[in-house]
């Protein structure tokens, strides 16, 4: 049942992403992307990462995408005439490069066909819960939390600087 759900979600994600990147209208592209992220969030949930799934919905699909939407509307990029349609000539190198990357990645995956042994002494598999996540986060990566929070602070400062109203 979960297996089937996963494949369905994967297909939905991929299709939504393809639609998002081929869409000329930026607002529509954002909507497709939100769809894609929702599907991905469910995949995360299936992979025993409920917290990440929630963050994906709240931050990505919620905050970030809404931010994009705001900017698009604010800059009046909403009409497709202004967003110039990329030419096929421009698409060609992109497709070639992306194709090579994909092929190489798949090749690497198939080359490593033997399943990787679990790290950490082969104890029996158990599902992670939020408590495990929290303990790892705050005990093992305490410094990383601090650094990330500093980074957010810097981002706030930078945004305030960029966005301040200048005298003409």
């Amino acid at each position: 049942m979960e297996q089937t759900l996963f494949y369905i979600l994967a297909i939905v994600t991929v299709i939504a992403t393809i639609l998002a990147i081929t869409e000329k209208h930026p607002v529509h592209a954002i909507i497709y992307l939100v769809t894609s992220f929702f599907a991905l969030a469910v995949v995360f949930y299936l992979l025993a990462a409920p917290l990440i799934a929630v963050f994906e919905v709240i931050i990505y699909a919620g905050a970030v995408m809404v931010l994009f939407m705001f900017v698009i509307m604010m800059l009046d990029q909403g009409n497709p005439e202004e967003a110039r349609c990329p030419l096929l000539v421009h698409c060609l190198p992109a497709l070639v490069l992306a194709g090579i990357i994909l092929a190489a990645l798949l090749l690497l995956l198939s080359g490593r066909s033997t399943p990787v042994a679990p790290i950490g002494g082969g104890s029996e598999k158990r599902l992670l819960d939020v408590a495990d996540f929290a303990i790892t986060l705050f005990k093992k990566y305490g410094v990383a939390i601090e650094i990330i929070s500093m980074q957010l602070l810097f981002a706030i400062v930078g945004v305030l600087y960029l966005g301040r109203r200048r005298k003409p």
Binding site: I52, A63, L127, L128
Partner: peptide, 21 residues
């Protein structure tokens, strides 16, 4: 993280989210 039953991967996913925002 799911494969090896360790929370580190999820922590990094969280980091990515924070960094992305």
């Amino acid at each position: 993280s799911y494969q090896w039953g360790r929370a580190d991967g999820q922590v990094f996913a969280l980091m990515i989210i924070a960094m992305t925002s």
